[in-house]
Amino acid sequence: MIKTMWIDKIKSNLLNLYPELGHFPSFQKLPQLITAKINPGTQRVLRYVLPVIALLFIIFFGLALGKSISNLFLQDKISITAPEQITKTPVIEYQSAVEPIKQEIEKFSLSVPDPVLPTLDDNLSLEEIKK
């Protein structure tokens, strides 16, 4: 009896918000119940907000349900440990004592004159030099 009263209360409040529901038979035979007094502004907001909340609830509920079901079938997570770093054995290459001499030979410039002496005037006189 109490359960039927609750359902009727919800239905009558819904009918108050959405008069369109009056077309359904279960909403047509409702006893005269006292509905919550809501001012028209809030009523207008509720009219649009309630379906959105209901939709979000369904989505989250669906996702949570899906996740809990998938967990039943999935195996435990496999953790991959980082591979050990491979350090190369250092190869000590033999350095011949002749190498530096060879480099010296290769770098040596044969261009002459080196160093270059700038041109110096060999005929400093007080008269114009006749060419």
Binding site: Y94, S96, I105, F108, L110
Partner: peptide, 20 residues
């Protein structure tokens, strides 16, 4: 002078080969 330098380089290469 260039010829001398070339010969020296050849000798150096040979010696490095022997040494190694």
């Amino acid at each position: 002078l260039g010829q001398i330098q070339y010969s020296e380089r050849r000798i150096a290469e040979r010696l490095i080969d022997f040494d190694k």
